[in-house]
């Protein structure tokens, strides 16, 4: 219960005290002086960024390929943000296929009907960029049959005030872990609600994201509690609350898990937190080539 409350309020007083404690106090007590730093800054070339997650449950193999943007360098002009002209090859060790460029904001796309992704199989991804840079990555799809998810609403609370109306939802998600192997789970739960201009269930609001492993609970039940929160200010059109939640549970490999967990925990530019170096398993660049199995449940 307390953890639910902490989750809900972590953006307010808890974070105020925890994350910015030192900053607040130092700023209050001392008139700190700010100026341009006079140190030699790293001047690096952009790095290729590769993101690709494959799954037997997905209809496509999607590859996103971009360049990183150096923070203190002017040498970015020859490097477009999105790399569209690379040769992207995926291989399962026996056969291989090219993932062709599809379009902006989607990237490279190949139907899994042409190159199936199978549980328990390892895949390599090789990217050759015309400027000579080459990326290599390797990942293995989890083999487990996915467990059934039990997803249920515990409580719904409606609060009305002069400012508007808010809906709080407490729900729980549980499943039985597959025994005998270390499992990594990422869950994402969304609120869905109708938008009159787009039709039912077309607007998605991410509610909760969590990361779990079965450490210490191998083969046991894993149970997670989440909370949804919607607020409509006075005077706005309150949409009908229908079939509100959809939960996705990804049983992933370690690469997929660590990459997403790092993104979730990113502390940004907070100078008082230890910098978090994001996970990468891309040789020659940064990013992630990961794999997952997926189940979803809606109610």
């Amino acid at each position: 219960m307390v953890m639910e409350i902490l989750t809900r309020y972590q953006s307010s007083s808890v974070l105020l005290l925890q994350k910015n404690l030192a900053t607040i106090i130092i700023c209050l007590l001392f008139a700190a002086c700010t100026k341009d730093a006079t140190v030699k800054l790293p001047d690096i070339a952009p790095k290729p960024v590769l993101v690709c997650f494959i799954s037997p449950e997905d209809s496509f193999i999607r590859v996103k390929l971009t360049n990183s943007i150096p923070l203190y360098s002017s040498s970015t002009k020859n490097y477009p943000f999105e790399i569209k002209d690379a040769e992207v090859m995926i291989s399962n060790g026996i056969t291989s296929a090219q993932v062709p460029w599809y379009k902006d904001s989607v990237g490279y796309l190949l139907s899994t009907s042409l190159f199936p992704i199978k549980p328990g199989t390892s895949y390599t991804l090789q990217v050759k960029i015309p400027d000579g840079r080459v990326l290599n990555a390797f990942t293995t799809v989890p083999v487990e049959d996915f467990p059934a998810i039990d997803f249920s609403l515990i409580r719904q609370t409606v609060d009305s005030s002069d400012f508007g109306i808010s809906y709080s939802f407490d729900y729980t998600m549980k499943w039985k872990d597959v025994a005998g192997i270390k499992n990594y789970y990422r869950g994402v739960i969304y609120n869905l609600y109708a938008d009159s201009s787009l039709g039912a269930d077309t607007t998605v609001q991410q509610s909760t994201e969590f990361f779990e492993t079965d450490e210490g609970r191998d083969g046991g039940e894993i149970r997670l509690n989440g909370q949804g929160y919607l607020f409509y200010s006075s005077g706005s059109t309150i949409p009908a609350i229908g079939s509100n939640f959809i939960g996705y549970l990804m049983l992933s490999n370690r690469d997929y898990y660590l990459y997403h967990k790092d993104l979730f925990q990113d502390m940004g530019d907070n100078p008082f937190s230890e910098a978090k170096i994001n996970f990468t398993n891309i040789e020659g660049g940064i990013g992630c080539f990961g794999a997952y199995r997926m189940a979803k449940k809606r109610f």
């Binding site: 790095k47 960024v49 993101v51 997905d58 999607r62 150096p70 989607v106 796309l109 997929y256």
Partner: peptide
Amino acid sequence: AITLPVAQYDAAPHNPAQIDNYSQY
């Protein structure tokens, strides 16, 4: 000795709600 950001990049996550669309990232 500190860790300083040297670049920024588009670290796209897998977005399962977009499973039926082409763009998940």
